[in-house]
Design a protein around this nucleic acid. Structure first.
Lengths: 332, 332
DNA sequence: GTGCGACATCGGCAATCGTCGTCATGGCCC
DNA sequence: GGGCCATGACGACGATTGCCGATGTCGCAC
C-alpha cells in the first residue's frame, strides 16, 4: 500500500504539504501542488481512511440496525438511507437484528467500537432498554420508535391516522360489517393502526365486535390462517382491514381458495404499500407508508444532529396516505 | 471516550498488559488479569476498532457491492451475507450501484480507502473493466460474474441448466407452442437461461420462432407489456417461460386482464423464486436460485481466501432447481 | 548447606500503523 | 529587523507487539 509518505518523497515535499493539498487546508504554491497531484496519480495513491478516521475522530460511517433487510419495507428504507448517505459522503454498515434484543446489543457494541458517526435504528419493542444500556454515546435516529433521551431523534409514521384512513374509506364505501386482521400486539405499529381504524368506525356509529378481530403475525401465511379464522368467526363481514400488505395478500389467497372473490364478495385494505402490492391480483388498495421520505428524512435528521450535537431532540411524524387500487368495492 | 491508557491507569498496570489480557495474547497473572477486567468493566471500556484496525492492518469489514438491495433477490443474498459475516466477526458495508459502472468505481474507491478486508461484488456487465482498473488489491468474490484474475473467486448459478429445466418441464407437460419473455440482452443471466431453454426444446424437436420471443427488462410492468406483445405476435402459444419471476407476474396480470386464465389457458414458468412467487395467484412455478447458498458460499469463499491469499482462484457453480407450484398445467 | 548460573515468568517501554494540525524555520521583501 | 510566505518537522490519535528488564525458581557444583 502506498502511503502519504511515498507521495511526499516522490514529489519532493513533506507529508504535511501533501496532506494540505489533498484537503485544501492551507495555501500551497500552485506549482508545488501540481507536483503533488502528479505524484498522487502516478502512485495511484488513495489516503487510508482508517488512519484518517483515527486522526480526525470521525469515520464517515453510519450504522443501520434493523430487524431484517429482506423485508421489503426495510429493504426500501435501507436503500433510501444508503443512497442519501452516500451523496453526503457517508457509508452504511448494515445490521440485521431480527428484532432480537440481545442481537441488537451485540450489534450496537460493535458499531460503537467501530466508531460510527451516527446510528439509524429500527429496534425491537425492547429498544428502549437496549438503548439505555449503551447510553447514547452516538447521535441516533430512531425509525418508528421513540425514546425520551438526548441525542436521539425520531422519524415516526402516524399509524393511527393510517388506520383511520382505512376505516374512513371502507365506511365510505358502505361497509358496515368489517373484519380486522391485526399484527403482533407487542409491536408499536399494529395497535396504533387498529386504534385509528376503530375510531373511524366509531365516528360512523359502527361497532367492531371482538369476534371480528383476529390477531396474527404480519406474515403471508399468518394472514391466510387469520382470514380463515375470520370467515368462521364472522361470516357476514364484507370488508377486511389487514394491518399489513403481506397479511392482506395471504387473506386474499385464503378467500380465493374458498371461492370468494375480491373485491366483489369481499373488500380488502392493506397497510405499507410494499412494491408487491401492485403485483398481486387484484392490485391491493392499501395505506402507503412514505418509505422514501422515511429514509431520506432519517439521514437528514442525523446529519443535522452531527452538525449540532446539542440541539434539542426532534420527532418528525410522517402521514401515510391511502392508495386506491382494485381490492375494494362499494357495498352493493 | 475511554482509552486503553485509562484502563491501564485504573488497574495499575501498563497498557501492554491490558492489551494482552483482552487479546489473550500472552500469559498474565490471573490476579492481575482480574484487576484489568474489573477496570475494563468499571470504565465501560471498549477498544477503539479504528485504532486497532490501523495497527493490525485489518478492519474486519467486508464490502458488499450490488445493483440494488431492494430487489428481493439481492435483498436475500445481502441478508445471508450479513448473517454469515457477522458470525465470523465481520461487518458489512452496503453499496448500491444500480448496475452503473461509474457508481461502481466510486464505491470501489471508497471501499478500498476504507481498507475493507474483502469484497463481495455483483457488478454490472462492465464489471471486468471496472474491476481491472482497481486492480484487485482486495480479495474478492464475484456473484454470478466471472473475471480471469488472481484473487478473485466466483459463485455462479447455472442459468443455462435452469433454462433447460424450465424447457424440459413445459415439454413434459405436453406444450409445443411456447413463448418466451426474455430479460435484458446485455445481462449475463438472461441469454444463458434462454440458451438452456432452447436446448431443451430442441431436444424434443421443438423450434422456437423469433416471433415467440419478446425481450424485456426483468420488471413487472415490462413483463406485462411483453406478454401483450406476445399474445399479438404468437396467439397460439399455450405456455410461457419468463426469464424472471417479476416478469412472470406481470405476464400473468396481462393475461388475466385479457380474460385468459393461468394455468388453464396458459402455463407460466418464472425464474428466481423470489419470496413473492408464493404470494401471487396462482402460486408461481419457477426455477429457484439457491439464494441462501449463494450468500453463505460467497462468505466462506472469501474467508478462505483471506486465510490463504495466494490460493488459486475458484469458481463454484450452483444448480438451480425447479419448484413446482400451480401456474402450469398439462396441455389437454 | 550455600552460592551461582540458567531459565521461565511477568510486566513495562517504546516503536509503529498513516494522517493531520501545530509549531518552527528559512528566505525574501520592505 | 520585522513581517510575511511557503513549507518542513514533529507529536498526537489509540491500540498492538517486539524487545528488554526485573523477579523468582530450580538445579547443580562445591
Amino acid at each position: 500500500m502506498t502511503t502519504i509518505a511515498d507521495v511526499a518523497r516522490h514529489a519532493g515535499v513533506s507529508v504535511a504539504t501533501v496532506s494540505h493539498v489533498m484537503n485544501h487546508t492551507r495555501h500551497v504554491e500552485p506549482e508545488t501542488a501540481e507536483r503533488v497531484r502528479a505524484a498522487i496519480s502516478a502512485l495511484r495513491y488513495s489516503p487510508n481512511s482508517v488512519a484518517r478516521s483515527l486522526r480526525r475522530g470521525e469515520t464517515k460511517t453510519i450504522g443501520l440496525l434493523l430487524p431484517d433487510n429482506s423485508n421489503p419495507f426495510f429493504a426500501s428504507v435501507a436503500r433510501q438511507i444508503e443512497d442519501a448517505g452516500f451523496v453526503s459522503g457517508y457509508t452504511v454498515i448494515l445490521c440485521n437484528s431480527d428484532g432480537n434484543a440481545e442481537k441488537e446489543e451485540r450489534y450496537l457494541s460493535v458499531l460503537m467500537a467501530k466508531q460510527i458517526d451516527g446510528l439509524i435504528f429500527a429496534g425491537s419493542s425492547d429498544h428502549a432498554r437496549v438503548f439505555a444500556r449503551m447510553l447514547p454515546s452516538v447521535p441516533a435516529v430512531l425509525l418508528d420508535r421513540e425514546i425520551q433521551s438526548v441525542n436521539v431523534d425520531s422519524v415516526l409514521v402516524d399509524h393511527d391516522h393510517g388506520g383511520y384512513l382505512a376505516g374512513k374509506y371502507l365506511v365510505g364505501l358502505g361497509h358496515r360489517k368489517i373484519g380486522v386482521i391485526g399484527g403482533p400486539r407487542d409491536s408499536s405499529s399494529s395497535p396504533a393502526r387498529l386504534r385509528g381504524f376503530v375510531r373511524a368506525l366509531a365516528e360512523a356509529g359502527i361497532d367492531l365486535p371482538p369476534s371480528s378481530i383476529v390477531d396474527s403475525d404480519y406474515h403471508f401465511a399468518g394472514g391466510r390462517l387469520a382470514m380463515e379464522q375470520l370467515m368462521a368467526q364472522a361470516p357476514d363481514i364484507t370488508a377486511v382491514f389487514a394491518c399489513n400488505d403481506l397479511m392482506a395478500m395471504g387473506a386474499i389467497t385464503a378467500l380465493r381458495s374458498r371461492g370468494s372473490r375480491v373485491p366483489d364478495d369481499m373488500s380488502m385494505v392493506g397497510f405499507d404499500d410494499i412494491p408487491y402490492a401492485v403485483t398481486t391480483w387484484p392490485p391491493l388498495t392499501t395505506i402507503a407508508q412514505p418509505v422514501e421520505k422515511i429514509g431520506t428524512l432519517a439521514v437528514s435528521l442525523l446529519l443535522e444532529r452531527l452538525g449540532e450535537p446539542e440541539a434539542p431532540s426532534r420527532r418528525e411524524v410522517l402521514a401515510p396516505v391511502l392508495v386506491e387500487r382494485e381490492s375494494c368495492a362499494a357495498l352493493r
